[in-house]
Nucleic acid binder design. Sequence first.
DNA 1: CCGACTTTGTGCATGCGTTCACAAGCGGTA
DNA 2: TACCGCTTGTGAACGCATGCACAAAGTCGG
Lengths: 251, 251
Amino acid sequence: MASQRGEGETTATPLEPADRERARAIPEAAVARLAVYLRVLSGMADQGVTAVSSEELSQAAGVNAAKLRKDLSYIGSYGTRGVGYDVEVLVSHIERILGLTRNHSVAVVGIGNLGHALANYGGFPGRGFPVTALFDVDPDLIGVPVGGIPVSHIDDITAVCLEREVSIGVIATPPPAAQSVCDRLVSAGVQCILNFAPVVLQVPDNVEVRKVDLAVEMQILSFHVARRADEAAHVSVGNNGLGVDGMVIRP
Amino acid sequence: MASQRGEGETTATPLEPADRERARAIPEAAVARLAVYLRVLSGMADQGVTAVSSEELSQAAGVNAAKLRKDLSYIGSYGTRGVGYDVEVLVSHIERILGLTRNHSVAVVGIGNLGHALANYGGFPGRGFPVTALFDVDPDLIGVPVGGIPVSHIDDITAVCLEREVSIGVIATPPPAAQSVCDRLVSAGVQCILNFAPVVLQVPDNVEVRKVDLAVEMQILSFHVARRADEAAHVSVGNNGLGVDGMVIRP
DNA sequence: CCGACTTTGTGCATGCGTTCACAAGCGGTA
DNA sequence: TACCGCTTGTGAACGCATGCACAAAGTCGG
């Protein structure tokens, strides 16, 4: 990856003007898929695969081949017609577009069950996201190392975040604390937040929030269960008047 | 799946024919938002609020008011013009559409850090999703109760899932095990899967999978960090020739 | 060197989701 | 009862994303 342009290059790779325009134009949905392609490609590279066609890659990523090619075209033309894509080349270009050539220091707030799990994830999946700070309010936790990092008190959040240049904050607190934690992160200069608390966060425009909401996910699945069950019931009604699990459906 | 529950139904509410057609037509994106509205409404109900306008609710849920009204219109017309919506009425209708009047037994596979966190979540956020089975391969874990449920061996997955009428399977295993676990869940009749493993699962058409992918979420945030930083650099170039963190940008 | 075959990259059409804007409907008031 | 102000519900326009289908461009065999 990466790219030693200039002289004192460390981690960050500046984008060429052409890339910059492209990055602006990439649809959000495509960005999410690029991350998936990247993982699949990394797996392939580990197994010694050097070239791949859009057809193969799309199957492995679980998407339409045309969609995959369009997604890749957003970041440039790095394939060879008649052949396919070079795995390494693709990996490095996706990493560059996703900003993975730069390190993103992560802070986890709320060291409960979930916070523990996150802190122990070990440098976070797909490295490049070192967890450098942990916060909680529980006095018994302060100073205790979790996953190698000692827990700081939440009141120190601003100082610690600034000092360790935290660029991504992860909220894993109970719901009532989430908004207040969020506000503190924002005032500490954190502009990207991953929220696990089942709360709709209010943030200024310049802050990006993504939420992972278990309750919502479960309820979406529940919706599909219900829909399926109901369709089945609808079909079976007229046969025996009974739904899928013996439930009586009114005529 | 499923089956033999007797006659006198306990929890499930069958949908009226009109509702059934509606349920089919609700866009996936709207379903996700309905779950959010439900949570906000529940919170309001707990605080004694009995009526709410689309404007208030949409603000609390962080969406456009028009979108909220359209989302609600998918499930029927339960508002009063000139007044707003009755909180309780709305709650019960959303619950019905999302299938929350029925209980969804949940199985968690992979009792590592994340699995522990999930099992201890305590009946899962927004009750209605009792965790009734836990699975792992580690002999030291088998039989040990986590969050009140003893861990079963993964080889017993089919029998246990059938017996406990599991309708939602949660995969929290290491990546290499995920597909195999998924296959076993499917053959045990589980039709809805929530996947935390960073793997693209291959499933038959009749199975619904939702994935929660931390790496992808982080990378999407990373993309935004990079885009922001790059825009900032682009602006500052021409001023002092330096990017955001003192990085040299070529002229 | 040429022609056949393969696979990319993309213009275009289609469909879905979001947003706007307004008529319809309801409660309150005189 | 008739009017007025407020809020819902929704038709219609718009914009984004997906999928199709094909020309462009490359490789490989002869």
